[in-house]
């Protein structure tokens, strides 16, 4: 029996940890290259797509639909939780609050 709180945390985490593939960028972005302040966040986000696909898979939902605020709250609670039961609990601890905030802004909907 999977505890509800775990399932909830995973669903929330998935939204944050999903990643865009550069494959999609090439189709829609004619600029060469676009350089912005969030360059490093795109590099940091490369880790995410090892687990999170564009579509949801059992136990690892897709990135979509959550606000940046909710994403940050989710990542932040993973980081601060003493429960290490999922990989996200242990991964989130490796990122500064600022990195989590920028990841949330990077992936989330504007709130």
């Amino acid at each position: 029996m999977i505890a509800w709180k775990h399932a909830t945390m995973i669903i929330l985490s998935a939204a944050v940890m999903g990643c865009r593939s550069p494959v999609e960028h090439q189709r829609l972005t004619p600029t060469d290259p676009v350089v912005s302040d969030s360059d490093d966040i795109e590099a940091i986000a490369l880790s995410c797509s090892g687990c999170h696909a564009d579509e949801a898979r059992p136990g690892i939902p897709a990135l979509s639909g959550l606000s940046s605020g909710d994403l940050y709250d989710s990542l932040s609670s993973y980081k601060r939780s003493t429960d290490g039961s999922t990989v996200m609990h242990r991964i989130a601890r490796g990122y500064s609050d600022e990195e989590l905030q920028r990841l949330a802004e990077h992936f989330g909907e504007e709130s």
Binding site: P22, H25, L28, T31, P33, V35, S36, S38
Partner: peptide
């Protein structure tokens, strides 16, 4: 992506 193509978007640094 369309927004970022036309303007500098801090949210979506689409690199090609």
């Amino acid at each position: 992506s369309l927004i970022s193509a036309g303007t500098i978007s801090a949210m979506l640094p689409a690199k090609v």
